[in-house]
Structure formats: structure tokens, C-alpha cells
């Protein structure tokens, strides 16, 4: 379906394509950590990822804050906020709770999911543990169902290397349809490329072509499409209709609440860039 191909609507001429845009030397020098100052930001960036993947490390590296990084799953239970500047723009960074998925029913996952869905960040950086790629990709694929404006930060590549794992990040980027940035956040390696990718996705200068998974058998696929069409009719301009449709079919109480309390109505009138990904197609 056409709507499955998010084409960032905002913004000017596509510059150089980028998943491989590692070219600019030492961009990190242009990073301005702004700590807790999130005033007057141009873009909102969400930071998602499995627990214990170095999400907090990335957060700290970008914002200059010192959120404690613990080596145990579930360390970050509350979302932190910080700001950073890169080139001419200010970004507000939201550190979402570390989650394995968006589909279970725990409190931390609800926080992450609700923000991605209803907070409509301009860019979502998914921090991925390169040594446990499969498990981390589960989350990436689920997030790609919600938003296409994603940058995958492939963290801990040094550890993967030590464990004898070779990663083909170009292949990964092709498969996922979004930029993949290998990095070692602990040593600030790859930070420059990450910033570059965030900027490009935020400005829409790179076309993310997030893959969508077709669901289950044909009957499911058909039901999802039918309900999604209905949602688009009732709420013109609403993003993520397929995903919302699926959750409604599953009887997700949080999403049902969003339908009844008018959250969806509010979202369908949301800011233009936030709804870009799916409305342009249809």
C-alpha cells in the first residue's frame, strides 16, 4: 500500500543521500550539549531502545547531562529530557524507558508507546545492541510500524567485534529502510554520524523508506486494511492508521481509550510534519 512508504514531507531539496553519509569530518565538534535547556527547540527527538543497550550513554553524550547509567535491565524507569544543538538547530531529546517491545502491557512500555504514538517526535533514535541484534530488531520493527522517521544507532559495535560478530550495516539499512549508524557511545565514537543522520531525518533530506511488516494471514491483513481505511475516513490526517487499526483489532485498552476520549481527533489535526509519513500516500 502506498501509505506504507513514508516520504518526509517537510523540507527542501534532498541533499546527498545518507545512510552512508559519514563523509563530514568531525561533526561532533558542532555538537552543543545544552543540558536541561530545552527551550525553543526546533525538533523533538525520542530515544528508544531495549534495556541495557547504552541508551542513557547516548543521552548523556548528546545532552552533556549525567543520567546514571546502570548495567541492569530496567534501570531507566522514568523518561529524562535534555537538549542539544547541532549546526543551526536546537533539539529536545526525550529518553524513553528501555523496553523490549511495544506490545506487552507493562507500565514502562505504555509510556514509550504512548509517546511515540501520541507525542509524535520528529525523529526517533532507536539504540540497538549490536551483540543482540535479533532481539533488538524486534523493537525496531515494532517502532517502524508506528513511525518511519527513525535512525538506528547500532551501539556496542566494539563489543560485537570482540565477540567475533561481523555486522553488515549497509545491508541492515537497506532492509530496514532507515539510516543505520554504527557506534560505540561509551567512547563517543560514531556520535558525529548519528548527529548527521538525526539532522537529515529531522529535515527530511533523507528519504526514510521504513519497511512495514505484513501481518499474519490474509484475513488479518484484510481486517487491518479495512479498519485503517475507516480510521482515515473518520480522522483525516491521522498518522499510523494501520498500527492503530491493528491495536484496535487486538482490543488494546490504551488505544481504545484514545478513540473514545478524543485523542485521535486531536491528533488528526496535528502539526504538518508530524503526520507526514502516512497521509501523503493516500
Amino acid at each position: 500500500m502506498a501509505e506504507d512508504l513514508p516520504t518526509p514531507s517537510a523540507s527542501p531539496p534532498p541533499a546527498a543521500n545518507t545512510a552512508c553519509g559519514t563523509c563530514v569530518f568531525n561533526n561532533a565538534a558542532q555538537l552543543r550539549a545544552l543540558g536541561v535547556d530545552v527551550s525553543g527547540h526546533d525538533h523533538v527527538v525520542a530515544l528508544a531502545g531495549n534495556p541495557n543497550t547504552g541508551k542513557s550513554t547516548v543521552f548523556n553524550a548528546l545532552t552533556g547531562l549525567r543520567q546514571h547509567v546502570g548495567n541492569w535491565p530496567g534501570k531507566t524507569v522514568t523518561g529524562a529530557e535534555g537538549g542539544f544543538g547541532y549546526r543551526q538547530r536546537h533539539y529536545k531529546l526525550i529518553d524513553l524507558p528501555g523496553t523490549y517491545s511495544l506490545l506487552s502491557d507493562s507500565q514502562d512500555e505504555d509510556v514509550a508507546r504512548d509517546f511515540l504514538l501520541f507525542g509524535q517526535p520528529d525523529v526517533t533514535v532507536v539504540v540497538v545492541d549490536a551483540t543482540r541484534l535479533q532481539r533488538n530488531l524486534n523493537l525496531v520493527l515494532q517502532i517502524l510500524q508506528v513511525t518511519g522517521r527513525v535512525v538506528v544507532a547500532l551501539n556496542l559495535v566494539d563489543e560485537a567485534h570482540r565477540h567475533g560478530l561481523a555486522l553488515d550495516q549497509r545491508h541492515l539499512a537497506r532492509e530496514l529502510g532507515v539510516p543505520v549508524v554504527p557506534m560505540t557511545a561509551r567512547n563517543r565514537q560514531g556520535l558525529d554520524t548519528l548527529l548527521e543522520a538525526i539532522e537529515q531525518v529531522a529535515l527530511g533530506t533523507v528519504a526514510t523508506r521504513a519497511r512495514r511488516v505484513r501481518h499474519g494471514d490474509d484475513r488479518t491483513e484484510h481486517a487491518v486494511s479495512e479498519l485503517a481505511a475507516r480510521l482515515r475516513r473518520d480522522h483525516p490526517g491521522l498518522a499510523n492508521t494501520r498500527w492503530i487499526a491493528l491495536r484496535l483489532l487486538e482490543g488494546d485498552p490504551g488505544i481504545e481509550r484514545a478513540v473514545t476520549d478524543g485523542t485521535l481527533d486531536r491528533l488528526s489535526g496535528a502539526t504538518p510534519h508530524a503526520v507526514s509519513s502516512e497521509t501523503t500516500g493516500t
Partner: peptide, 11 residues
């Protein structure tokens, strides 16, 4: 239920 999801999340 959710436990099944969780186990699958973990691979």
C-alpha cells in the same frame, strides 16, 4: 498473554 510476548521479546 503478556508472558508469551515477553518470552518472544527475549528471543
Amino acid at each position: 498473554g503478556p508472558q508469551r510476548r515477553r518470552l518472544m521479546d527475549l528471543g
